[in-house]
């Protein structure tokens, strides 16, 4: 157990880094970290370094695994299943298939034209932006494993239920007709990558993703540091406190228009939890930020009619709010 705790504290939570940044703040800047400014500097420097280290390692590992699941293969696997099994598999594969919002349309068309049920495709589209291995480990680092596992489980469940509702509603008529007739290539098993190619691919993903999201992380950490040290706790508990019935609704409403990566949303979530905001409220905020991204919706709107979009968005929002309230009920068990 001692070894496990050591790994958890030093590798995952990086307590050595926290100490290092503390002594840097105190000795170089001459600021006590219990002061506001010192505390902000500590939070900012420590969090940025920690997130970037974890991000690099995690994206590398995750991308290596992902290289075994190109979208073509995922589609071939999903094509063999129907009903709830298909939705469940869609949600799970969504967590490991490489995906960026700019690929959502070709992917949607590729899945649908191959005859995959609409609900399965939506289960996939739902889970892929906000549940993945990297975010799970980061949640474990910032909070704990209980919260990390709960986040992944509720995320996958939401994706399965959301997809199932869309299946049951028979909304195929709201998809642009050309989508069903589009020819797409089959997955060629012949194109197997070598280990070296997978390593190159994984490293390319790291540089590519870091280049794309570092701004969100810096902004997220800066907001986190501001919440942590400058915004009065009373203000936050008035708005988002656990005793407030509207806290989850408000957190979701703030999160929806925000377009950020999950890694940018995490430091904000971290600071909010320290201020006593309920876990359910904070996770609802994170899910709202990542699951509903306006750019991706605008693109998706080119191929599906607004009615289907509205169903999709409402299912996600209602789901997030329900999850938020349920988790707030279990708050004391999670922290």
């Amino acid at each position: 157990m001692f070894i496990l705790r050591l790994i958890n504290d030093q590798l995952l939570k990086m307590q050595w880094l926290s100490e290092l940044v503390r002594s840097l703040t105190e000795n170089v800047f001459g600021l006590d970290i219990s002061t506001r400014l010192g505390g902000s500097i500590h939070f900012f420097v420590y969090d940025i370094i920690k997130i970037f280290i974890l991000l690099t390692v995690l994206i590398y590992l995750v991308s290596y695994i992902q290289s075994y699941f190109p979208p073509e293969r995922t589609r071939a696997i999903l094509g063999r299943f129907r009903g709830i099994t298909g939705n469940a598999l869609g949600a799970l594969l969504g967590t490991i298939t490489p995906f960026c919002s700019c690929s959502s349309i070709p992917l949607f068309i590729g899945f649908t034209s191959a005859g995959l049920p609409l609900g399965v495709t939506f289960s996939f589209l739902l889970s892929s932006p906000f549940v993945d291995l990297a975010s799970m480990v980061l949640l474990a680092s910032i909070f704990n494993w209980k919260i990390a596992i709960v986040y992944v489980v509720v995320g996958v469940v939401l994706a399965i239920i959301g997809g199932t509702i869309i299946s049951k509603m028979k909304l195929e008529q709201y998809v642009a007709p050309f989508v069903f007739h589009q020819e797409v290539s089959e997955f060629e098993e012949g194109t197997v990558m070598t280990r070296r190619e997978r390593m190159t691919y994984a490293w390319d993903q790291v540089t590519d993703i870091v280049k794309r999201i570092w701004v969100y992380i810096v902004i997220g950490v800066a907001i986190g540091a501001a919440i942590h040290n400058w915004i009065p706790a009373e203000l936050i508990s008035t708005l988002l406190g656990q005793d407030k019935w509207y806290s989850v609704l408000l957190a979701t409403a703030i999160g929806i228009p925000m377009y950020a990566d999950i890694f940018g949303a995490l430091p904000i979530a971290e600071a909010l939890v320290y201020k006593g905001v309920g876990v359910g409220t904070v996770l609802a905020f994170m899910m709202a930020v990542t699951a509903i991204s306006p750019p991706s919706l605008i693109m998706l709107n080119q191929v599906v009619k607004s009615k289907l979009m509205a169903v999709f968005v409402s299912v996600v929002i209602v789901g997030i709010i329900i999850i938020g309230y349920i988790l707030n009920g279990f708050n004391t068990l999670l922290i």
Binding site: E72, R75, I105, P106, L107, G110, F178, Q182, V303
Partner: peptide, 14 residues
């Protein structure tokens, strides 16, 4: 144009 993109039978962009 999404239809033209899809005519190349790809599933991810760019």
């Amino acid at each position: 144009d999404i239809q033209e993109i899809m005519s190349y039978k790809i599933m991810s962009t760019p």
